[in-house]
Structure formats: structure tokens, C-alpha cells
Design a protein around this nucleic acid. Structure first.
Length: 107
DNA sequence: GAAGTGACTCCTC
DNA sequence: CGAGGAGCCACTT
């Protein structure tokens, strides 16, 4: 059948999840890079939507995804949780900002 | 099939 | 460094 994004778009989402699962502990990735690695260049927003659709009990490291400015794009209070998770992995936030030059993950 | 939406990014002021 | 605006992509309704 020609169903693409009608019932369950496990095609694009699964790619995002796959890349997400590859992010090593203690590292972070930007929405833009995540999308690009999944095969959707310039689709940073899509990455965000995919993560937003992610179930709560997901084992995927959604907290390792931040914006290109090294900041958490998530609204409160989720942002606080994400920051704590990152710090718990050793990712230091200075002024609510992550040093992408140090923690940005690249394959 | 068109219009709306967003956990974005880049450029300019 | 912060605020504002246009551009982009794929999903959702």
C-alpha cells in the first residue's frame, strides 16, 4: 500500500530514534544534527516534534538533544529535568549553556 | 489536498 | 548578549 504518514509513520520517526539511541552517554547533539544524521537535513524542527511525540518511559536519551545555541529548548519544568539528567552524565552547563565545542557528539 | 504547527536555525538590528 | 523576523522540513488536523 502507499501509506506513508497516515497510520504510523515509523519510517521517519524510527530513524530519529535510531540516531538518538546512538548518542553516547555524556555527550549531546543539536536538533539540526540529529535530523541531518537521520537523513533529514534542515529539518531540525521535525526532530523536535519527533522527540515530543516520544513516550515518557522511552529509554532513548532524549535529554541529550539541545539546540544549536547549546541551550535547552524545552519549556519549564521539563528543562530543569533535562539539565539534571545532563549534569548527572557529566555534561556541565555554564549559565544554562552547554559547551558544544566539548560535548557535541559527532560520528 | 491545503492550512496550521513546532523540544529549530540563521541572519540582522 | 538579547530580541525580532524570515526560512525550512515533515507531521497533524
Amino acid at each position: 500500500m502507499g501509506n506513508k504518514a497516515q497510520n504510523h509513520d515509523y519510517d521517519a520517526i524510527s530513524r530519529i530514534c535510531r540516531v538518538l539511541a546512538e548518542i553516547p552517554r555524556g555527550r549531546v547533539i543539536t536538533y539540526g544534527d540529529l535530523a541531518e544524521m537521520a537523513g533529514f537535513p534542515r529539518a531540525a524542527r521535525f526532530a523536535g516534534q519527533a522527540l515530543r511525540r516520544l513516550p515518557q518511559g522511552s529509554k532513548l536519551p532524549w535529554h541529550r538533544v539541545i539546540n544549536a545555541q547549546g541551550r535547552i529548548s524545552l519549556p519549564e519544568p521539563a528543562a530543569q529535568r533535562q539539565q539534571e539528567r545532563l549534569e548527572r552524565e557529566g555534561v556541565v552547563l555554564i549559565g544554562g549553556r552547554v559547551d558544544l565545542g566539548k560535548y557535541r557528539w559527532s560520528p
